[in-house]
Nucleic acid binder design. Structure first.
Lengths: 100, 100
DNA sequence: CTTGTATTTAGATATTTACCTAAATATCAT
DNA sequence: ATGATATTTAGGTAAATATCTAAATACAAG
């Protein structure tokens, strides 16, 4: 996992709002759309990016397609973030060469 | 901490590479630039976005400007990510933190 | 105070992205 | 099969972003 898809998916406020919505339970694309002012076509585009990042899963139920959080990716994401930002023990700013 | 700036900053591969570099210690803008093929001007733009997200700090040392990770933001970021993706039983969109 | 080095800012361009409308696909109900 | 509903795909546009070159700023050393 490169993080490319993940962080890109998280970079958009609409997509983060979709994720927030889904925290309270799975919803169909149409139900999700009721919470937004943009068109369903635009939302579908966002759904695609969220799926690409594996942040959500889909399941068809008759006419509806139900979106739900893929919670298993959450730990990976948090781990990735920590890994990205955790400094190694040596070398902090204070240790930087004082080459003034 | 806005989340908007954070995830946007993390969405770009060059900026993530800058952060990875800084994990092993603070470096000046020029030293960082040696690891990339893009111009220093372009990198400066990326530095600005990383600063805006409070992912890095700067300190002037003579002619150099030394960049270092802002590690204090790391826990906030991880917490934010977990909050965004953790399902809840009763939360609605209104209950969700706005600033994620 | 002038010259050299380090970094940023300004202005321009190419690519990417978010959004829209319209059309296509999939399922359900009659 | 026909019509209605739900969702996605296609095609196009406007805004945002990454990048470049050139110019400006900040500091150090002579």
């Amino acid at each position: 996992m490169t993080g490319q898809h993940l962080f890109k998916a998280l970079a958009d406020p609409t997509r983060r709002d979709i994720l927030k919505l889904l925290r309270s339970g799975s919803q169909s694309a149409g139900d999700i759309a009721d919470h937004f002012t943009i068109t369903k076509a635009s939302l579908s585009h966002h759904f695609n990016l969220l799926k690409q990042a594996e942040l959500v899963r889909t399941e068809r139920r008759g006419q509806h397609i139900v979106y739900s959080l893929n919670t298993s990716v959450m730990e990976d994401a948090a781990t990735m973030l920590v890994a990205l930002l955790s400094p190694t023990q040596e070398n902090t700013l204070e240790d930087a060469p004082d080459d003034i």
